[in-house]
Amino acid sequence: MLEVRELHVSYGGVVRALRGISLEVPDGGVVAVLGGNGAGKSTLLRTVSSTLRLHRGAVVSGTVTWDGRSLRGLDAAETVRRGIVQVPEGRRIFGRLSVDENLKAGGLGARDKRTRGAARDRVYAMFPMLAERKGLRAGLLSGGQQQMLAIGRALMAAPRLLILDEPSLGLAPQVVGQVGQVIRDINAAGTAVLLVEQNATMALGVAATAYVLDVGEVSLSGPAAELAATDDVQRLYLGDGSTTAVAVPTGATLSRWQG
């Protein structure tokens, strides 16, 4: 289980991006974190994956534990070896490497060769489209295909917790639906998922629990179905019951949920 308690994070000692966040991702569960641009979603994920330092950010106070052990002070590679793998915002596939090489790169964090081989078979079975394009330069894939590759690459290290930062960003609604289905399948195979989204329709459809993040604080949390029924989430994130993705207002609009 991933447990975040009273987490405060700042960048360069000045910008306070997170102000006392607490959340949990139970083993085998799917948790969604919603919030507008700048709410602190990526910062939360960077803290868990230990890449904050690359952005000149640092934990001010609070704890992040995984199975009861602190994740603070680890480097990113070590976090991967403990079973937490993140698909970063904007996919960040290695465009000059082939599809297969991208998966091999994902396998570098696997514990051993056997895990890696099994994961590769599993990924190609899950995404036949990638198997057909093994030798292709990954940069030539479409946006949706790149997202699938980014997810497949992350699965290569056989994570117990898969973290996704806005996987639906920039994708056509139909492809967003496919991403949602892929996340369900991955979770059905036993992997816990922490899903960060602005697209609440997909996220609330997949997650059991959800948190709404607003300028560095949790403004709402609870079972995803209950949250989806809330007037404010309806209006701000779901566009009055419409099933398509909607543009999300900035975090500031949500501040009245505070307190």
């Binding site: 690359l54 960040r92 596939i93 000059r96 570098l108 964090g109």
Partner: peptide, 18 residues
């Protein structure tokens, strides 16, 4: 592979456990 991945995107490579 780690070299080429890291040269292209160091942070993404770190997230892959490189």
């Amino acid at each position: 592979i780690a070299m080429r991945a890291g040269a292209e995107d160091g942070e993404a490579a770190a997230l892959m456990g490189v």
